[in-house]
Design a binder for these strands. Sequence first.
DNA 1: CCAACGATATATCAGTTCGATATATCAATG
DNA 2: CATTGATATATCGAACTGATATATCGTTGG
Lengths: 224, 224
Amino acid sequence: MLDLAILGLLHEQEQHGYEIRRRLRDELGLFANISFGSLYPALSRLEAAHAVTVIESSGGAAAPSMPFTGSLSGERAGLRARRAGTPRGTKRSRKVYRITDQGRRLFEQLLDADERPGADDARSFGLRLAFARHIAPQARLALLERRRAQLTRRLATDQVRASGDTLDVYTRSLVEHSTEATEHDIAWLDRLIESERLKQPAPRSENREPHTGDAVTATKGTSP
Amino acid sequence: MLDLAILGLLHEQEQHGYEIRRRLRDELGLFANISFGSLYPALSRLEAAHAVTVIESSGGAAAPSMPFTGSLSGERAGLRARRAGTPRGTKRSRKVYRITDQGRRLFEQLLDADERPGADDARSFGLRLAFARHIAPQARLALLERRRAQLTRRLATDQVRASGDTLDVYTRSLVEHSTEATEHDIAWLDRLIESERLKQPAPRSENREPHTGDAVTATKGTSP
DNA sequence: CCAACGATATATCAGTTCGATATATCAATG
DNA sequence: CATTGATATATCGAACTGATATATCGTTGG
C-alpha cells in the first residue's frame, strides 16, 4: 500500500524520501506520520523491483537531465552556500528517486488491481481517490462504486450488531455513531458518483438504473 | 492493542481463541476480522506474561471449578454426542483462557496509560470506549476529552491542508469530507461528554467553563 | 566565536499485525 | 461414506510502527 503512495507521488515529480514523507503527511493526510521504518524499506523494495531509480545521491555533480521546475535549489549547494542567499537549501546527502516506465506500469496495476477488502480499507480507498485523476473515467467510477458497495455491506453488519441487546451504553453509542458515519460516507460517495456520471455519457447503459440512496434510506426503514 | 481487547473480553468471561475472534468481530466491530496470526501469538504472549491461564485444554475431564453460566455446553461432549440432542457443541480441542489477577491489573493499566497518539488512534479509542464501563467515571471523562482534543488538533491540520490550492478535485473532496467527518465525531463526543458530566457532580470545578462547540463552530469562522 | 539545539536526512531494529496456509475434528450434505 | 463446510489452533513471511542511531546544516544565544 505504501508502494502505491510512493509511486503516486513520484509519478508527478522526482523526490527524496524525507520529502515524500512530508507530502504524505501534509497533502494526502492519509498516513498521518508514516514511519521511516516503513518508508525507506519501501523505497529499497521499489528500487530492487526496478520501479524507481536513484537520480542523485549527494550534493556533488551529476545534475539530472531534466532541470525540474520544482521548489528547491538542490544542485551543488553546500559549497560556499555559507552566507549568500538560498535561505532554504540542500541539507545533507539526499537520495533523489525517479519513477521508471516499469514503475509507472506497476502504479497503474496497483491502482485498480490490488484492492483487497481488508482491515484497513478506508486508507486504501482514500489513497486511490487521491490519485484518481491518473486513471480512466470508467475505472474511477468503478472505484467509487466498489467503495459504495463495501460501505453498504458494512452498514448491514453494523445494524445486525446494533439490533442485539447485549451491548452496554458506550458500545451501543459507538456502534450507532459508526453507523451514522458510514451513512454519511455513502451520501458523500453518491455525490461523487453523480458528479462522475455527469462528466461521462453513461458508458453502456441498459440494465442501469439510478440507485442513489437505496441503502442509505433503507437504514431508516428496514425495521418493521 | 490486541492485548487490551483480549483482556477486555476475558474480563467478562473465560473463552477460547476462536470465540474471542467472533466476539471481536460481531460485538466490538473494531478489528473487522482479526487475523489468527495476531490472535494466537497474542494469547501466547499474555500467557507468558501470566496475564491469562489456560483452564481447559481438550474435551476431556478437568471441568473448571467455576461452572460458568455461559452459553454453550462444552464439558465432556464429543463422546457419544453422535445422534442425540446437543445441536451446537464442543468442536475439537479448544484452549479456554481465563484472566488472572495480574491480567486484570494489566488491563486497567493498558486502559488509561498506553494511549499513544499514533496512526491508528480511532481504533484505539473505540476499543477503550467499548470497555469504558470498567473504568472510573473520571477516567472515562478524561478519555473522552483526550479524544476530543486529538480530533480538534486534526481539524486544525485538515484546514491547513484544505487551504492550499495545490489539491486536485478528488483530493480536495477527500479532505473536505474528512473534515466534516471529524466535526461530526467531535459533536458526538460533546454529547457523550455532556452525558458523563450529568452523571457526576463536576469533580473539582473552578477554571472549568463549558467548552461545548468551540472548535466545531470555529471551523466556520477562522478564515478572515 | 562556538556550543547547543532543532530541522533535515537516511538507516536499522525489535515488536505487532496481517494474509496465507497447514492441520485436525466434527456436522451436514448428498 | 466421501465431500464439503464450520470450528479450532498454529505458523510463516511480509509489512508497518516506534524507537533509536548517525550525520549534516542552520539558528540561537551565552
